[in-house]
Nucleic acid binder design. Structure first.
Lengths: 267, 267
DNA sequence: CGAACCCTTGACAGAAATCAACTAAGGTGG
DNA sequence: CCACCTTAGTTGATTTCTGTCAAGGGTTCG
């Protein structure tokens, strides 16, 4: 069991493995996924779960490995990325509080994506076996799993639509407007991730993103390091043609539905 | 309720609306989605469902519309496509027997994709309301929904990985090898769909697909109209670098996991 | 028979990746 | 505190990939 080996190694090397702290349980409990579950079942899951701090840039799991644990990001930020033939791409970035690799755990098969921390992160890991037992036993939890998976699926459909229907300039413009919308139409915000990572998520190279940002400076965007400011919303909107069927509805302010974490407003 | 309006119109214009036929129930029942459901619940669903024949090229539903029905393709072939800003792309093609727009029905929200028949098709439509009631009541059905959604999600993740990590030549080569693998490593097969549709699914223009096929003729592929024959598997494999984490495991021979229907072997 | 429509091919334009060089910022260790 | 190193980001030059436009061949279907 590679998963358990890993745990033990980490335990000795960093003394990071603990039971889930009482103080973090309520936050996890508030997740839509666990909210409606019977208390006894939730407690059982928490008792068999591990909780651990990880340093930045650490690989949590690799694509192709058997799915042993459902992961919950309690603190920090985790990149989900895919690799093939020496290339790699960012599929999503998940922040607190949300889960990842749920589908792989359910199907009891290999992860399709790798995960690594972007910053110091606290991760709760629920053994896949116990997870599967839980929703077989608890109908309310099963319902929550259904809703979660349906949302994840739709999120990935939107990601694919975005890639297939828009070019990179349009994708960037749409991303900017989306982040603004999530901050109540704020005129500016700070990028939630490095530009290179944003580029990868949007399906382009860092060089291309850099140039595309420069292009957009004549179309209503001002770039100041990590800070982006919308100077002409109409122009950007004309370019991006925002569409809730791709970008997600503005009412959905949850991070779960967004491929990248929500930015912080500025200006 | 646009959905019911549509039904009534169709009823009068084509006399196509019927209760689900007794003879087609067993086929539907055999679907992983319905297989484990309690018989009484299955019968209830079938009693409230519509069953209808559609001519080719007919729009079954449009993206953005509220999800009123889970659709089951009993016969024929249906394209799921996405539109934006005057462009459109094929996201998947589903053949018998499988379902589509399950996620939208669960979330009780708008379809993310449009659907139209590619050939004369027989479609069973289960009202979303009854569907949701069913898996709230039937834990075994809920489990099946979970497994189905998890599979759909992973399928879309693979589609996105394919788009982001491979160029169009690699995608085509991988597609060819995948179809061959699904037919027991058959050297040749007939394309299950028109080339223009394959092009759209693979994220390229018809012209580009045409040229790429020509390119591959010097890399182990022979193209004869709708018939493709592998002449040098090693060369194609070197190009495509098939990967179960993108192309799907060879053991999964179900159509549900494939973005396009399975081809028929020849030669 | 004509009208679509699919497919192909050619010529061209545009988009995006690659390669290379350079700057700036942040962290490390002396 | 500073020299050094690493890394993100930018910019330019170039190549490669892909889309667009246009035209023609072949097929199907009314």
């Amino acid at each position: 069991m590679p998963g358990h080996d890993m745990i033990i190694i980490k335990y000795h090397s960093e003394a990071g493995v603990r039971f889930v702290r009482e103080q973090e349980k309520p936050d996890i409990r508030r997740l839509p996924l666990f909210r409606d579950m019977a208390t006894a079942n939730f407690e059982t899951l928490m008792q068999v779960a591990y909780s651990q701090n990880f340093p930045p840039q650490l690989d949590l799991l690799r694509q192709g490995e058997p799915a042993d644990f459902l992961h919950i990001v309690v603190e920090g930020m985790v990149e989900l990325r895919a690799e093939w033939g020496g290339r790699e791409t960012t599929m999503a970035v998940v922040g607190p509080i949300s889960t990842f690799v749920l589908a792989a755990c359910i199907k009891d098969t290999a992860y399709l994506m790798s995960a690594r921390t972007l910053e110091k992160s606290r991760i709760v890991m629920v053994p896949a076996v116990d997870l599967r037992a839980a929703f077989r036993r608890d109908p309310d939890f099963a319902m929550a799993v259904i809703v979660d998976l349906a949302g994840s699926y739709r999120s990935m459909v939107r990601h694919a639509k975005n890639l297939k229907l828009r070019n990179s300039r349009e994708r960037l413009a749409a991303f900017v407007l989306r982040q603004s919308a999530l901050n109540g139409q704020a005129p500016g915000f700070v990028l939630p991730v490095e530009k290179r990572l944003l580029a990868s998520y949007l399906g382009m190279t860092p060089e291309n993103l850099s140039r595309t940002m420069r292009q957009l400076e004549s179309e209503g965007l001002k770039v100041d390091g990590q800070r982006l400011i919308i100077t002409d919303r109409a122009a950007l909107t004309a370019l991006a043609q925002p569409d809730p069927l791709i970008d997600g509805p503005d009412t959905e302010l949850t991070a779960e539905e967004l491929g990248l974490p929500r930015a912080n407003a500025v200006g």
